[in-house]
Write a protein that binds this DNA or RNA. Structure first.
Lengths: 138, 138
DNA sequence: TAAGTTAATGCAACAATGTTGCAAAATATT
DNA sequence: AATATTTTGCAACATTGTTGCATTAACTTA
């Protein structure tokens, strides 16, 4: 499972570097979504701030991770479910943000409901952000 | 209709000031959502940057406007539909972001579908962000 | 409406976040 | 192993958001 990290990087035509391995590992281990600051904290002073920014950017472009829309102006990233198995990505997502502990969950198994749009609107992607209490805080 | 601005401020126990009137007017006139930068541009150098921040913050607290979750790290605000008629707010929202023109629509009339959450999760609010092409760009 | 009271504004300084160019270092290629 | 390519770290900068405090404006009461 852990050597899947190297393969994920290779599959996406990315050079295998310490920072990319470490950051991708953080995502694999994380139960929820990560903000830039989380990564900066968890990786210590090991990598430059700029490197983290660029790594996240690269991962998003390659579809390894995706951003999660939040109302509070904090950018969060989560592993794309299929990242380690397929290159397919940017599917619809349901995310859950806990008001208590602040954790963000990517609910891969929850189906995104269809939304009835007004005439003339065409949807290409639907994100659902549910907030409330998570299973640990309820 | 325009003097409704003053009444909205009064109803929310806010002093009627130039900045609040102007900024609220911008929202009333705006067809879509506004970012902090939009407001700064459209109001020129009339108000201090800090004042705009604080005004937006106040409006959010009072439920006059609400933030819209976005995946691209830009905070946007939109008028709460009932802001000028009732004090009730913070309902579920469906927002539409156009990939072409970048406009954000607050689809007040679209019902937020129910989401089936995993066991133990309790929802208090649900936001839906649909992206694609709007009625003008489709 | 004039005096006093309360609240909002502007300024300055700061903190956090994100970006860009470029030389040095690491990775990949032959 | 030598060369070519990519990534990193540093420095400097740009943007965005926050806080404290004196000044100013708005509200209240008489």
């Amino acid at each position: 499972m852990l050597h899947g990290i190297n393969e994920t990087l290779k599959r996406n035509q990315l050079s295998i570097t310490d920072s990319r391995k470490k950051i991708l590992e953080l995502f694999v281990r994380a139960s929820g979504a990560l903000a830039h600051a989380d990564i900066e904290n968890q990786s210590g002073t090991e990598f430059d701030r700029v490197t983290i920014y660029r790594t996240l950017q690269t991962f998003v472009e390659k579809g390894i991770i995706h951003t999660i829309p939040t109302a509070d102006n904090s950018v969060r990233y989560a592993l794309c479910k299929d990242a380690c198995t397929e290159g397919h990505h940017h599917d619809d997502h349901v995310h859950f943000m806990c008001d208590d502990c602040g954790k963000t969950y990517c609910l891969d198994h929850v189906t995104v409901p269809a939304v009835a749009l007004p005439k003339g609107f065409q949807a290409t992607q639907t994100d659902v952000i549910v907030s409330g209490k998570c299973m640990n805080c309820a």
